[in-house]
Amino acid sequence: MDLVARLKLSVPLIQAPMAGTSTPGMAAAVSNAGALGSIAVGTLTPQAAARDIAQVRAATDRAFNVNLFVHAPPGTDPAREAAWLDALRPLFTAFGAQPPIALETIYPTFSGNAEMLSTLVDLAPPVISFHFGLPDAGAVAALKSAGCVLLATATSPDEALLAKEAGIDALVAQGWEAGGHRGMFDPTAPDDRLGTMALTRLLVSRSGMPVIAAGGIMDGHGIRAALDLGAIAAQLGTAFVACPESSADEAYRTALAGVAAQHTTMLDAISGRPARCLANRFTTFADTASLPPVAAYPRAYHAGKALNAVAKAAGEGGFGAQWAGQGAPLSRPVPAADLVALLAEELAASR
């Protein structure tokens, strides 16, 4: 499949779907500029997902991507969750608050979510992408019958093979450098931590599928490197966080523009799954010796979001999920359409 031609992209670029940061306005601006804009609906209800898809469609007649989380449903572990809440208690106390009495599963997985599947089949967005795993064969068949192009994150050749066998159309090769949540299908399995360059080349040479490189890419030169490795496009997320269309708060933007951008770290303490974040007060806490095991994803995120809320109310922005990749110091705070144009210029100049 010539995915770039099918989607009528003039720039081989995907704006990464960043839950809590990307917006319908950003996705539409990126798509209108000739790349593929994305929204993330993995944390939303089907009704909210339909609302966001409608907002994108109202602002562009070009292709866009809708992203979903396909993680294993979390079990409850009362003892582990209580220990994790106790570990967080001093942080809450410092802001005159208490942690949640008990953790909750704050959003469901797409796996087995019949209502979300029905909504997506009815609305048939041009592209749908999956993170953390793959939906079942019935969901894949239904979405493809609706005309959707399907993408899936792969962090290893084994995950790429599973995606190919499932009928996915193209792979997003997520390197260790990438910001945000690591897309491993099984976060408890050994992780070879393959970098974007090595992973992209492995998947291009061995998977027999179109590959989109993701992780640490911030400019047109990085996109050119991905294309030279055989990728059909590059996916950039951190590059778009500072755009005015993103929903990043002021603390996130300030951290991204400062020294914290030079010290990203992978941690599971915020949400319960490994994710790369700017250095902040939560990453410092995560380095504390003898912390108990983090509660499961996304139940741990219930506590992480609650802590961020009470900290922000007290004027402290350093406990947020400030996801960013290793290329964060190259961030440029310009409107999304201008950034796409700039990336295209850099790509053309790098031939």
Rank of each mutant, 00 (worst) to 15 (best):
V11Q: 00
T21E: 11
S22Q: 01
N32H: 03
T45G: 12
T45A: 15
A50V: 13
A54W: 05
V56C: 03
T60K: 00
D61T: 15
D61K: 07
N65F: 04
N67T: 06
R89H: 12
P90N: 07
F95Y: 15
A97E: 05
P100Y: 04
T105E: 12
T109D: 11
A114V: 15
S118P: 05
T119V: 10
V121E: 07
S129D: 01
P135G: 01
D136S: 09
G147P: 12
V149A: 02
E159P: 11
K164E: 10
A166R: 15
A170C: 11
Q174Y: 05
W176E: 02
P187D: 10
T196K: 00
L199P: 07
G220N: 04
A231W: 01
A242T: 11
A242L: 15
Y252P: 05
R253M: 12
R253F: 07
L256S: 02
Q262V: 02
T264L: 08
M266Y: 01
A269W: 07
C277I: 13
L278N: 06
T284M: 11
D287T: 14
T288Q: 13
P292Q: 06
Y297V: 09
N308L: 04
A314N: 14
A314V: 12
E316P: 01
G325T: 10
Q326L: 11
L330C: 11
L342R: 15
A349C: 03
R351L: 12
